[in-house]
Design a protein around this nucleic acid. Sequence first.
RNA 1: GCCCCCUUCGUCUAAUGGUUAGGACGUCAGGUUUUCAACCUGAAAACAGGAGUUCAAUUCUCCUAGGGGGUACCA
Length: 445
Amino acid sequence: MAVTVRFAPSPTGRIHAGNIRTALINWMFAHATHGRLILRLDDTDAERSTEEFANGIREDLSWLGLDWAEEVRQSDRFTRYDEAVEKLKAGGRLYPAYETPEELELKRKRQLARGRPPVYDRAALKLTPEERAGFDAEGRKPHWRFELESRDVVWDDLMRGRQHVDAASLSDPVLVRADGTYLYTLPSVVDDIDLGITHVIRGEDHVVNTAPQIQLFEALSATTPAFGHHSLLVGAEGQALSKRDRSLSIEGLREEGIEALAVTTYVATLGTSDPVAPHANLDELARGFEFGKLSRAPARFDPHELRLLNAKVLHMLPFSVVAGRLSAMGAGGGEAFWHAVRSNLAVLADAEVWWRVVNGPLAPVITDASICEQALALLPPEPWDGSTWERLAADVKQATGAKGKALFQPLRLALTAREHGPELKHLLPLIGKARATARLEGKTA
RNA sequence: GCCCCCUUCGUCUAAUGGUUAGGACGUCAGGUUUUCAACCUGAAAACAGGAGUUCAAUUCUCCUAGGGGGUACCA
């Protein structure tokens, strides 16, 4: 059976590095197996879900180059969930409970105080028909719980190996709220069934959820998919990743000028036995993907390391990939320009500075007028190429007797107005004779 | 509180019941580029702690500590 996986964010916020890891693992697995990735928007919570966030998620995924074969949203599928509810009621697995959230909270506190796990006591299961009728007559609306079978639930996790969860230690999950809306559990399972999901790949925060979900698949007479739970990312200090940390949001990273490929490469190789090193594209990343390479320990997401990787990724990007963005920022210059400056960039936007150096206008910095004068006089006729600079430097050296830093620093400052930068050998032909002449004369050009 | 998972250089990790515990990133030093970056070479740098099993434990077992996750009418 063809692999079908899904990435299921809830559009109640923008996605961050941790979500992207889940998305990326799903994408790489689908890609490597020629399977399908479905984007599922878990928007059953109408209060907090917005179209704006949904757009933001699509935008972030697209920017990263993670495409999906199909999109579904849970808010379109309520009739399917209603049908599943009927089936579960008919099977005797769904029961109404009338406790208020406050009452449940109190029960939990009492259990905790006695050193007991806060597991629902199933009081509602012991209600007589008369008692239920009484609550209904009062106008109290029940919420609905799924009655778990008290047994050890076992599955072979794609990343963690054989897992056991004792369902007897779990509360019967609420599937339907008192107001009739759905919680995450049932829609997720019904969607996985209807969409033919073969592998549920998500973060380890869902490990325990898997037990009730497996029982739900069974109660709905469906085949259970394979499950895989990856470890979660933590921050540079080992702390849990916060959804509010903007430096970790995909939007924030993009605004900072980080390359999409740097983000995907970093997140895909972090916490794996592969070195964190630049890759040419997503395909290459997907080719190396194996569940077994993922460590079970949480990995640290360090923005500083990401920036270092970003520079390396940038240095190997071919001109064709950046041409459009360079001209969008007003830096023309073509391939020669790109190759001259790319290894001096930390983020692509830095190219703009060098474009001005090459294209002007630029006010030169004259620190040694006589060297500049000599250079001016010795400027050869165009066309200029990669050897022009070396000849010029040699000629000026001979004419002035200056050498080393005393020779090169004044020329660099006059020609580029800064102390550091790409090799003048590559820069000089791009600057051209007209601008070089003017700058050596101390004029802005 | 209870349950599950995890712990090897600063970071991501490899390997193994007997190894000089390997690699990558970073750091430091040298080279190269008469600048910076890039590049090349080299160096420093780790088995969380304690018991036990064993001729031998980083590796197996237990305990402790630390980290992560779960324990919702969140997802």
